[in-house]
Amino acid sequence: MNRLDTLEAQSVFILREAYATARPLAALWSVGKDSNVVLWLARKAFFGRVPFPVVQLDTDMELDEVYAYRDQYTKEWDLDLIVIDCPPESEMDPDLPPMTRAAARKSAGLASLLEGDSYKGIIVGIRRDEEATRAKERVFSPRALSGVWEFRDQPPEFWDQFATETPEGAHLRIHPLLHWTEVDIWRYSQRENIPINPLYFTQNGKRYRSLGEKNITAPIESNASTVDEIIAELETTRSPERAGRLMDSEAEDSFERLRTSGYM
């Protein structure tokens, strides 16, 4: 087994555990490279289909190419798509720094999804290497109804035995890509021929390394126009993946505050 086989087998195992123990189940789809891989892995796990709804938390601020990709592959992959309109920024906690406040709209959108339907499991494509508080996550992460992450009191998780029961109203965040790295995502996308959003390739000397809302995300300097070139670029870069996600670095703990209050 090579490295991609190992990663895939573990993620498929996690998705099947989620499907067997945490229903009703839904997957968040930001239409970025990571959640595209999650849906692909679900089709691997369930032999060609995604047997649960796929939820896009829409801020109406995504780039056009994101909406185009969403519409095309919802049809081609036969997805049961749910689009949630996120509440406006004016309803967010005014104490948050401005960019962080914009990002908090997605946590609020997710909260409204959970209030409406009693999902027990929400699949999210975050990875440990993206960001330091995500590195502390569990594969199955129990959340209160409010979505709050009790990072001081996470359950033990070992031998692939995951939390399966939650108190009434609470849910499980399920993280099938936690053990993947950014380069793993690209190598796997390449091996599996997963369609790539053109925003990841260079246009006029810039490309998006991480896709977020257009008001709080900046492209990076890059001439990479193929997946191979992206991989080559990542092999030598020392700047972090989320450098273009402006809310992360507004304050020392701005991203931690986002995450503990329910952000992905």
Partner: peptide, 14 residues
């Protein structure tokens, strides 16, 4: 060392 490193190399076992 940096140029010799294979970040995320598919062949390299973890």
């Amino acid at each position: 060392e940096n140029t010799a490193m294979q970040i995320g190399s598919t062949a390299g076992k973890l």
